[in-house]
């Protein structure tokens, strides 16, 4: 269980975050005071400074600075095309950033394949469209990476996989193929698959956007439990209820920039920026 930060933890964290902000003095994105607060236990797990990403002539990220603390849950919201997904896809190098620096658990993401692999081993990801492997059973989906990447013996991989399936409450589906499951079940398998690698960070890229309404709750429940267990999470979502309830910090992005960062209370009751207010008025 992660309790809210003790006072001196929060203090340390604030110092660190200030340091980070100082390094990136050319940033335009950091505006609200709340940026300086890093939740969780304090030690930074993800550090992005001045991250830029271009798709051809289109600038998807315009110098993003953000630090995510260990055991912190950060929810990223914003209109479509604002760079939310691009940002978290840069964190496990599914996209290569063009400028700035990204550290994950102390490892900088560079061209080095070895470092990229090391980061990906510790970063789990859940996609909007599940992306389960349709030719493998649920169990095989989950054990593939532990067997190939962690090189666990088959017995251990299986055991961990079944634990994860039980955690998302579908152990009885272990031998089915993804195509035989409902969308909600598939997404829970995808969560179990990522967790079976025992990652230090979990990234969620709009995990409920492709689901029928009645299946959203079961996926959010699984994510809520995960957050309670102390996992460091970065979640891109449109589920404001989830953000309000689970997030340590909410990040609002627009046009490739972080417009505002704050606690859920700050965010949903007293947002500082006009763009944030406009966005919230449109979706709430």
């Amino acid at each position: 269980m992660t309790e809210p930060n003790t006072a001196d933890q929060a203090h340390d964290t604030a110092d660190q975050a200030h340091d980070t902000a100082d390094q990136a003095h050319d940033t335009v994105a950091v505006q609200a005071d709340a940026t300086a607060v890093v939740g969780g236990t304090g030690a930074p797990m993800i550090e992005c400074t001045g991250v830029e990403k271009w798709f051809g002539d289109f600038c998807a990220l315009r110098g993003v600075d953000i630090t995510v603390g260990t055991q912190e849950v950060v929810v990223v919201i914003g209109p479509s095309g604002s760079g939310k997904s691009t940002l978290i896809r840069c964190v496990n190098r599914l996209e290569e950033h063009d400028r700035g620096r990204i550290f994950v658990d102390g490892i900088e993401l560079t061209r080095s394949l070895k470092d990229i692999q090391a980061v990906r081993r510790e970063v789990g990801m859940v996609f909007q469209s599940f992306n389960l492997f349709p030719h493998l059973t649920v169990l095989e989906n989950i054990t593939l990476a532990p067997l190939q990447v962690r090189r666990w013996p088959a017995g251990k991989a299986r055991e961990v996989a079944m634990e994860q399936l039980e955690a998302v409450r579908i152990p009885e589906q272990a031998h089915k193929y993804p195509g035989q499951l409902s969308g909600g079940q598939q997404q829970r398998v995808a969560i179990a698959r990522a967790l079976a690698m025992q990652p230090k960070v979990m990234l969620f890229d709009e995990p409920t956007s492709a689901l029928d309404p009645e299946m959203i709750a079961e996926v959010l429940d699984a994510m809520r439990e995960l957050a309670r267990s102390g996992m460091t999470m970065v979640v891109v979502t449109h589920e404001m209820g989830f953000a309000r309830e689970v997030a340590d910090r909410v990040v609002f992005m627009a046009d490739g920039e972080i417009v505002e960062v704050g606690t859920p209370e700050h965010f949903f009751t007293d947002p500082a920026e006009d763009r944030t207010k406009l966005f919230l008025s449109q979706i709430l």
């Binding site: 992306n131 492997f133 593939l144 690698m197």
Partner: peptide, 26 residues
């Protein structure tokens, strides 16, 4: 689909495993 490769990469699979275990069988 490209998502298959991304999912495999995100799990930390090496290129040859992505090809052999995920892409080629499908």
């Amino acid at each position: 689909p490209g998502g298959q490769v991304e999912a495999a990469q995100a799990l930390g699979l090496r290129r040859r495993h992505v090809v052999r275990r995920v892409v080629l069988p499908q």
